[in-house]
Simulated assay, not measured.
Amino acid sequence: MMNSVLKTLCSAAALTICTAGAAWAEYPDRTISLMVPFAAGGGADVPARFIAEELEKELGQSVVVSNVTGAGGTVGATQLSTATADGYSLGFMPVGTTTTQPHLRGTSYGVDSFIPICMVASGPFYLVVDADSEFKTWEDLEAKAKGDGITFTGAAPGSLAHVTSVALGAMWGVDVGYLPTKGGGDAMNELKGGRADATAWFSDFDVRFGLNALAIFAPERSEIHPDVPTSGDKGHPADIAVWMGVFAPAGTPDDVVAKLDSACEAAITSEGFTANMEKANREIRHMNADEFGAFFRKAFEENGELLRNAGLVKN
């Protein structure tokens, strides 16, 4: 009798081990969460939903986008940094949240808190105004800035929009007022409501919001908007680009990272993702896990130095 019980228990234990091993080998076997640290409809939210749709096809499981807002993306990033590192909690995060906010806010997360899986998109910022605005040219906005002053809007202090406003003020030798919001969608409301004069946005400023661009912060004009002058054309060369990609919490197993990396590459090069991004006037830039990891670390250090040199962070 005793031998029979022991045999049954051992068989059950062996079954549990085998089942667990099979489940791990079959990652993913349940829904994956893709956290965006800004409100729905913002600059990061759009490509996140495009890539989630294609990742579902590649991974064979639902990829649900969740928006966790607050403090320039740091609330969502902090949650991701402490999430279980099993491949089921991922984040779609931009440059500001991951490489500038830790220096500015002294966040609990840093460069070692995440594993970069893949870069998905990157594109230069444009200086944009509402289509009904009094500002028709760079010179119009500059004159107002040097006269009565202007108000710039964007995500929370420390975001790349905020950094852009500081850079713009330095170009013109003035202080540019800043109206922070919870994210891009709210910034557009401030702009269209007349409470802000300008903001920085991606290349889809026209198709999404019907805005006008006064300049692009890039070394060269864009193929998407060839008529928009560069800030360099106006005597103030600048290169302000926003990249974003998929991240996992540190400690995520190598085999899971490898599978996500492979799925990302297939998703980014898919016809569906390419068509959606093209329709939205957004620019694709893919880096695999190894490339993105090295790029991320370099950007983290360089942006920290940039912020210190700008006087936004104490040495």
Rank of each mutant, 00 (worst) to 15 (best):
L214F: 02
A215V: 01
A215I: 01
F217P: 02
F217W: 13
F217S: 09
A218K: 03
A218D: 11
P219H: 08
P219V: 02
E220R: 05
R221M: 04
R221S: 09
S222A: 07
S222L: 04
E223T: 15
H225V: 04
H225T: 05
P226I: 05
P226G: 06
P226K: 00
P229D: 03
T230C: 08
G232P: 12
G232N: 09
G232I: 01
G235I: 00
H236K: 04
H236N: 09
P237T: 02
P237C: 02
P237F: 04
A238Q: 10
A238M: 15
D239F: 11
I240M: 15
I240Y: 07
I240Q: 12
A241R: 14
A241W: 09
A241G: 08
V242H: 09
V242P: 00
V242A: 12
W243M: 01
M244F: 11
M244V: 11
M244G: 15
G245M: 01
V246A: 02
V246S: 01
V246I: 14
V246K: 01
V246F: 02
F247V: 13
F247D: 05
F247A: 02
A250H: 11
A250G: 04
G251R: 08
G251F: 06
P253D: 08
D254W: 09
D254F: 13
D255R: 14
V256R: 09
V257R: 04
V257M: 02
A258D: 09
K259V: 08
K259Y: 03
K259W: 05
L260M: 04
L260E: 01
L260F: 02
L260P: 06
D261A: 08
D261C: 03
S262A: 15
S262N: 10
S262F: 08
A263Y: 02
C264F: 00
C264D: 02
E265A: 06
A267I: 03
A267D: 07
A267W: 03
A267L: 03
I268S: 08
I268T: 12
I268C: 12
T269N: 14
S270M: 01
S270D: 10
E271I: 05
G272F: 04
T274K: 12
T274V: 14
T274R: 12
A275D: 11
N276C: 04
N276H: 11
M277H: 00
M277F: 06
E278D: 15
E278L: 12
K279G: 15
K279L: 06
K279W: 05
A280K: 03
A280H: 00
N281W: 05
N281K: 05
N281R: 11
N281Y: 07
R282T: 07
R282C: 11
E283W: 09
I284E: 08
I284C: 06
R285W: 15
M287R: 14
M287W: 07
N288V: 00
N288R: 04
A289T: 15
A289Q: 12
D290L: 06
D290V: 14
D290Q: 14
E291Y: 10
F292E: 07
G293T: 12
A294W: 00
F295C: 09
F296R: 00
F296L: 05
F296G: 00
R297L: 04
K298W: 05
K298S: 14
A299I: 10
F300N: 05
